[in-house]
């Protein structure tokens, strides 16, 4: 039962923490959304569309943070064989994929009025798209393998390979873009943000991050419960089969 010691502690801990996280998420979103719709002024160049950024930027940031979390969990699984690490990596992948997708969709919705097209083969867009494919590969690989333990370890290897290659992809896409077209069209200069835009953005970023942890924790709890149910079913079947075999 040693293997179960940690998940049990996690279940107790998360049961207590989760309501607070959910409440905090709701509160932060209430403040953040109010600020981004009513406090923040429309940009003099971008107009009202600048408000898309309050969704877009936090999503993009979480898309990357989530991959980092998967990578750390994968190391935890491969090096220390921590059972919770596998649960964490499995729970994080779909959430990360959704945030990446949100970043891509909101980005292209913003791009239509700004650049006149939904999609530009800009270096940043392209590397986020590839990140999305990496997420899909991770999810697909895990779904394809029946053995749960093996699925966890093999996707951990893939996640770590992705971590090694992601910076190279990012670098090469930058290079590729500068080869073909001059200066990037991205105008969001981080340092030049006015505080009326910056504060809503920061609140939204924190809100999204707390939302991510709430979702991730809930998904981890579900995964642990699912595994316990599966284990219970197996012991039930075992018990049901044993007397028959004896006869």
């Amino acid at each position: 039962m040693l293997r179960f010691a940690n998940p049990t502690w996690f279940m107790n801990f998360s049961a207590r923490l989760l309501p607070w996280l959910v409440g905090l998420t709701a509160l932060l979103f209430a403040i953040g959304l109010y600020m981004s719709f009513f406090t923040a002024p429309p940009d003099y160049q971008q107009g009202e569309t600048v408000r898309i950024m309050f969704i877009h930027v936090p999503s993009a940031w979480l898309a990357m943070m989530c991959y980092g979390l998967i990578a750390v969990s994968s190391i935890g699984l491969l090096v220390w064989r921590h059972p919770l690490a596998d649960v964490s990596a499995k729970a994080a992948a779909p959430i990360g994929a959704v945030f990446t997708f949100t970043a891509l969709v909101t980005g292209s919705l913003w791009g239509k009025p700004m650049w006149g097209t939904y999609w530009v083969w800009d270096a940043r867009l392209t590397s986020v798209l590839i990140l999305f494919f990496l997420y899909l590969g991770l999810i697909a690989l895990r779904n394809a393998i029946d053995d749960e333990v093996q699925a966890g370890k093999l996707s951990a290897i893939l996640a770590l390979v992705g971590t090694v290659i992601l910076p190279i992809i990012k670098f090469s896409v930058n290079w590729w873009n500068t080869l073909h077209q001059p200066a990037s069209v991205m105008r969001m200069g981080g340092s030049t943000l006015h505080s009326s835009i910056l504060y809503p953005l920061l609140v939204m970023a924190v809100a999204f991050t707390v939302l991510f942890f709430a979702l991730h924790m809930k998904a981890m709890r579900n995964e642990i419960l699912r595994r316990r149910v599966a284990a219970l079913r197996i012991t039930q079947v075992d018990e049901a089969m044993t007397p028959q075999a004896a006869e």
């Binding site: 494919f133 697909a140 394809a144 393998i145 093999l154 390979v161 992809i169």
Partner: peptide
Amino acid sequence: ALTLGLGRGGLLLSLIILPLYVP
């Protein structure tokens, strides 16, 4: 190696590996 012995190996292999070929 990752997709070894999985039924739909070919398609899965492409999904996993093609992004890594970008550089």
